[in-house]
């Protein structure tokens, strides 16, 4: 069974399901009576069917390849799932905290967290001094970014004590 579930096959199945959902969404489009040009649902439907055809083709090709045993060694396989998930969680948290907590707080925290994680201290062990250094770097970078964007380019960024 596992032999069949190659990457191509999995993605093809997903795409097929997606295109079914898409076509369902297309049927929900309120079409106005429009004599001459095409209606608003023409393109979505066309694309939906195209995707159905293409994903079926990919599915078939993928299955054939799996049958023949031609499974290539694939490229960037995520080795460290935990790090990736943690990173994603940090980003999601950033997005949601952006408006309430403000740019400065969020960015500093995010930078601090990621640089501490990713950097390897020269001393070899991550002690307090290392974390303090990362915190300072994060704060400085955040300040620079704030200066450039909010002050220099006059782009309004939400901050904790000012309404945007």
């Amino acid at each position: 069974m596992k032999k069949w579930l190659t990457k191509d096959v999995c993605s093809a199945i997903f795409l097929l399901l997606f295109s079914v959902w898409w076509l369902w969404g297309a049927s929900a489009i309120k079409v106005q009576s429009f004599d001459n040009g095409l209606a608003a649902d023409y393109m979505p439907k066309l694309l939906g069917w195209l995707l159905v055809v293409l994903s079926v083709v990919q599915l078939v090709l993928g299955l054939l390849k799996a049958l023949k045993g031609e499974v290539r060694e694939s490229d960037p396989v995520p080795k460290n799932h935990l790090v990736m998930l943690g990173l994603l969680a940090a980003l999601v948290a950033y997005c949601f905290a952006f408006k309430p907590l403000g740019f400065i707080v969020c960015t500093t925290l995010f930078l601090f967290g990621t640089t501490s994680w990713l950097n390897d201290p020269k001393a070899g062990k991550k002690d307090v001094i290392f974390f303090v250094k990362q915190l300072v770097i994060s704060m400085v970078i955040t300040a620079m970014l704030y200066l450039i964007f909010a002050v220099g380019f006059k782009i309004s960024l939400p901050t904790l004590w000012l309404q945007m």
């Binding site: 770097i137 400085v140 300040a143 909010a150 002050v151 006059k154 309004s156 939400p158 000012l162």
Partner: peptide, 16 residues
């Protein structure tokens, strides 16, 4: 770093 941060907070920002 702390000074820079506080400076930008007080002095800068067009949000008001």
């Amino acid at each position: 770093g702390a000074m820079t941060l506080s400076l930008t907070a007080c002095g800068g920002g067009n949000g008001g």
